[in-house]
Design a binder for these strands. Structure first.
Lengths: 257, 257
DNA sequence: ACTTTCGAAACTTTCGAAAACCTGTTTACA
DNA sequence: TGTAAACAGGTTTTCGAAAGTTTCGAAAGT
């Protein structure tokens, strides 16, 4: 019948901001679904670091064609979750403590930068989403190695949602874009930590939430910095195989100059 | 033919460092060549901001199949040089002064961070490449709007090579990766500046080179910061269409071959 | 005069198969 | 016995066409 004129209300209005890169292809479309699944599988180490990704197996696993897979893999390479070499196809990106250290250092900067800006531009809707996403996160409690995989997955989702909520009102699209990419990278290491680490930590998310809601920029930034550094330390000391350097690519041929 | 055992000598040996994202797919392969060409065409505004990228025209222009184009476009979307929407195909990413400001702010951080680290880890080979690439850059002199396109292109190449050389010994793969992406983004605006701006600037590259070779971290960092900020200012004041918000989608059918 | 409906053209998306490629093994030859 | 070329199997890469959407314009209706 008549066209509906009422606009959908967005919780956080990012649209009038500046032009930015695109984190997502398109919401429907088969390619996007395959990409989403593969990314999740790599993040949760169902597809293990350095594992070779043969089209035969992938075609079966995701029930799709080679072309579609190629496009999804192409994206994953850009995101740093997969690699490819001339004529030898694709493989899952390796992991190492050195890599985790490196990306975490940059994360400290990007998370603090985006968080500080987000706090300065915070709105009621932003606060509401923080409260809400923290509630959902705290309801689960950080999984231990004995918890089922489904719980770990759900926790991972809610953890991401909470951290995304914190920086949602940041006005720098590029900062948000890179922050998001690095956060996903870190998720691979978080997963390994959930699987292996048994030590307990303070409720850093609660402290973070309160500092942010109190609009205390300095405190919030130093809290998130510690949050990131603690995670690295925990992974480094409690995840076997990461303590050394792990991720030995046996296919390295021309690595010396 | 016997296999050649002599290895190519790399100027800067980055391979043994930590694992990192991949800036390039594969060195040969048709897809890579198409990607390289399209990226160059977007960077040099042969494919204009917001221009729609139809497969029919692209297939003709780059003489390749739809699948290959799709893979290349997919990469460009990840790099933020193209966009895509469900069922409506691809288009060149828009530009705006707001975008240039945003990405330049982040560039200031990444360039100073990588440069400082590179200086601390500088080697003889690194210095040599800086001297060499500066020489090539200075031999050309910054093009004015009246210079031919080929000269502008060559200058763009040498400019990139010089700036890459400066940070080549940085030990953080992730920082280098993001720095490189942002540098390419900035190249689109540099191109517009070359086409329109007539004002002259000091020889900032020479000052930069000398500060870096003198291993003066603070001076070098403040110089590159000014270098970036000056470029933004020049673009903002001298590039028509960017002073407002630009990105006019003039629906031209085909830019001739 | 304006809106809606319908249909055809243009375009995008997906797929499977042919061609090219790499790898490891066998075979020929010194 | 050692080296190198030839072969075979499995994979990757590329392509063109079928299937599925969107867009545009004309005709019908209000």
């Amino acid at each position: 019948m008549a066209k509906i004129l009422k606009m959908p209300v967005e919780i956080v209005d990012r649209s009038p901001a500046t032009t930015a890169p695109q984190d997502v292809l398109r919401e429907d479309a088969a390619t996007f679904e395959v990409l989403r699944q593969m990314r999740e599988d790599i993040l949760c180490c169902v597809l293990k670091p350095d594992q070779r990704l043969r089209f035969g197996e992938l075609r079966q696993r995701y029930d799709t064609s080679v072309g579609t897979l190629r496009e999804a893999l192409s994206h994953l390479v850009s995101e740093g979750l997969a690699r490819t070499e001339a004529g030898r196809g694709f493989s899952v990106a390796p992991i190492s403590l050195a890599d985790f250290l490196d990306l975490s250092e940059l994360r400290v900067y990007l998370e603090t930068r985006t968080l500080a800006d987000a706090i300065r531009n915070g709105t009621d809707a932003w606060e509401a989403e923080i409260v809400s996403s923290y509630f959902l996160l705290s309801k689960l409690g950080k999984p231990t190695p004995d918890d089922p995989v489904s719980l770990k997955r759900e926790w991972g989702k809610r953890h991401k949602r909470f951290h995304d909520a914190l920086v949602a009102t940041c006005t720098s699209p590029w900062s948000l874009h890179f922050r998001s990419e690095l956060f996903d990278q870190a998720r691979r290491y978080h997963w390994l930590t959930m699987i292996h680490a048994r030590s307990r930590r303070r409720n850093e998310h609660l402290e973070l939430r309160d500092a942010v809601l109190a609009r205390d920029v300095d405190l919030a930034c130093s809290l998130i910095e510690r949050h990131i550094r603690n995670t690295v330390e925990q992974a480094g000391s409690e995840v076997p195989g990461l303590t050394l350097h792990a991720a030995n690519a046996r296919s390295s041929r021309r690595t010396k100059g």
